[in-house]
Design a protein around this nucleic acid. Structure first.
Length: 593
RNA sequence: GGAGUCUUAGCUCAAUUGGUUAGAGCGCCGCCCUGUCACGGCGGAGGUUGCGGGUUCGAGCCCCGUAGACUCCGCCA
């Protein structure tokens, strides 16, 4: 028998009355009546009431007077029926109570930094005392959900023949992608490992290694600024398989997510997921991860304004651009502040201004409506289903700008109108056929939209060869839930010649190809199978399942907005000797203190 | 790097138009209390209103600066 307890705190029932039991846990609530003392003893499973009665054990009761919140104690005694009429129906253990013969204080608790049973305090305080905050039921529940999700993932993928393989954390820096975290090498002074941004190359090399079906619950590291859904270290569900087409991945992932939602929420999600191409998603929703729980579609107005005398719209169309609008139903009475914010957003994303129509008292209030012909007004009315109380927002510019601007406005207006508040709907979809490359005006070069190992669609290879890089679509796909990108992947390149051409198009010199990617190019010359895969943000999935606003709420020990662990106070200065051993000299002044 | 919101007791918050001694609940300390389950009652301690400066007869409140937290943009193949 265990020396601390015979039962957990959500175990004893009526049928145990008369038995002897030993419990251990935290003093959750104290109700000291001067004579009799009640304690709700808590462990991770629940609560059991412990009663100290002076007439039965005066000495022990006297000791119990000194107990404080969150002391860790052990009690041993008799499971008793509660006095009739005092049962607590709110507790599963509410019919019984433990009357102890012994009380052992295993650890005293100081005055608490914040109460556990009240509203959560400032997050920096919570993070400073994370080990304490973890006792809150919500965080404990979230971590259990997270476990359910990873367990369901492992079980499902194992069932499908996938093998979990660990890949190195001490890895190699590459110029593409996010900023690397660097780790200095002591044995090779002056050189550095990089922590992996993702196990991308390793998993492809495992395919070359003939493992065929790989997965990993993989820690990844990116040295970029943080967000509510971004931490410097995070976890991916990483998957790769050989001899697969996109459809194989789609079916696998739909099964996986179904298993995950079944295991964590008891929900049957509808599969297969609908699919949209990137172009469709941008055209209809102005986003490559559209939230379709509300409509507000981007409505194309090219044929309405093709011959318009309104120069702003006509000009955009004549220049080969687009004119589109969204109808924010019932949002005509938005506040000045909201209106200003939307205008600022439109400008931020490249619009020259924000044209609008407010429909109030049967009237179209708008600075531009006077330029419209009767026919144009009629067309707008029918295309946009204009009704009393609506707010119509227009954008006229290049197609990309129009979609981006209206897409952002659509999302923000949905937030303002609380269109998805309290929604239980789970809107999964695939977004496919992403562009392979995007031109960066800043760097004056083409960059990979997904990553440089992504395969162009076979039917677009000719366009790639013709250097029409902007028109080449990739065999790449994202899975989106309620406007959040859960994961993305692609079919990869497995031919060394094609891979080298892609590197060249991305501006990676022959020399850099050899020094940075030589191993993968060589691997592709030794019998590389066609392969592809996908990776999911585990933290984001668990966040959505738990209904949390940030991934910090589903991580045991997250960092704050500036990447600082407030509990351990890392990152921290290191000893001069440690630096010497690594051959490193700091170029910045050491902070005093 | 940029924008926004916030910062008052250990915690969550309040404080009228700029007005006298900055309050409440919870927590903490002490006393009382034998069937509670958010136990209850009485009493008490606890504040450089983030920090620095300014305006004013007078600043928690107005202005400037600064630090920190969070959210967003940039960034995140």
């Amino acid at each position: 028998m265990n020396r601390y307890r015979t039962h957990h705190c959500n175990e004893l029932r009526k049928s145990d009355i008369g038995e002897t039991a030993m419990l251990a846990g935290w003093v959750h609530v104290l109700r000291d009546h001067g004579g009799v003392i009640f304690i709700d003893l808590r462990d991770r499973e629940g609560l059991t009431q412990v009663v100290f009665r002076p007439e039965e054990n005066a000495e022990l009761t006297a000791e119990a007077h000194h107990l404080r919140h969150e002391d860790v104690i052990q009690v041993e005694g008799k499971v008793s029926a509660r006095v009739p009429g005092t049962e607590n129906p709110k507790l599963p253990t509410g019919d019984i109570e433990l009357v102890p013969n012994t009380l052992k204080i295993l650890n005293r608790a100081d005055v608490l930094p914040f109460p556990l049973d009240a509203e959560a305090p400032n997050e920096d305080l919570r993070l400073s005392y994370r080990y304490f905050d973890l006792r809150r039921p919500q965080l404990a529940r979230n971590l259990r959900v997270r476990h359910r999700v990873t367990k369901a993932t492992r079980d499902f993928l194992d069932e499908k023949g996938f093998i979990e393989i660990e890949t190195p954390i001490l890895s190699k820096s590459t110029p593409e992608g996010a900023r690397d975290f660097l780790v200095p090498s002591r044995l090779t002074k002056g050189k550095f490992y990089a922590l992996p941004q993702a196990p991308q190359q390793y998993k492809q090399l495992l395919m070359v290694g003939g493992l065929e079906k790989y997965f990993q619950i993989a820690k990844c590291f990116r040295d970029e600024d943080l967000r509510s859904d971004r931490q410097p270290e995070f976890t991916q569900i990483d998957i790769e398989a050989s001899f697969v087409e996109p459809d194989d991945i789609f079916v696998l992932v739909e099964g996986l997510l179904a298993a995950v939602f079944r295991a964590s929420r008891g929900l049957e999600i509808p599969i297969p997921f609908p699919r949209l191409t990137y172009t469709q998603a941008m055209d209809e929703f102005g986003s490559d991860k559209p939230d379709r729980r509300f409509a507000m579609p981007l409505t194309d107005l090219a044929d309405v304004f093709r011959e318009s005398s309104f120069k702003m719209f006509r000009g955009a169309l004549d220049a080969g651009g687009a004119v589109k609008a969204i109808n924010a139903k019932g949002f005509a009475e938005l506040t000045i502040g909201q209106s200003d914010e939307l205008t600022a957003m439109a400008k931020q994303y490249g619009a020259k201004g924000l044209a609008f129509i407010k429909v109030e008292n049967g009237e179209w209030k708008s600075p531009i409506v006077k330029f419209f012909s009767e026919a144009e007004k009629q067309a707008l009315r029918s295309k946009l289903l204009v009704e009393e109380g609506d707010l119509i927002l227009f954008a006229a510019d290049k197609w990309e700008v129009v979609c981006e601007v209206l897409g952002r406005l659509r999302s923000r207006i949905a937030e303002m109108q609380k269109l998805t508040a309290g929604s239980e709907q789970l809107d999964f979809l695939w977004v496919t056929d992403f562009p392979l490359m995007a031109f960066s005006a800043e760097e004056n070069k083409w960059n990979a939209v997904h990553h440089p190992f992504t395969r162009p669609k076979d039917e677009d290879i000719a366009k790639f060869e013709a250097q029409k890089f902007g028109e080449v679509r990739a065999e790449a796909y994202d899975v989106v839930l309620n406007g959040v990108e859960l994961g993305g992947g692609s079919i990869r390149i497995h031919e060394p010649e094609l891979q080298a051409k892609i590197f060249a198009a991305l501006g990676v010199s022959e020399e850099d190809q050899q020094t940075l990617f030589g191993h993968i190019l060589r691997a592709f010359r030794l019998g590389a199978p066609p392969h592809g895969g996908i990776a999911f943000g585990l933290d984001r999935i668990v966040m959505l399942i738990c209904g949390e606003e940030t991934i910090r709420e589903v991580m045991a020990f997250p960092k704050n907005n500036r990447g600082i662990d407030l509990m351990s106070l890392s990152p921290s200065a290191v000893d001069a000797r440690q630096l010497r051993e690594l051959g490193i000299k700091l170029a910045i002044e050491k902070e005093s203190g």
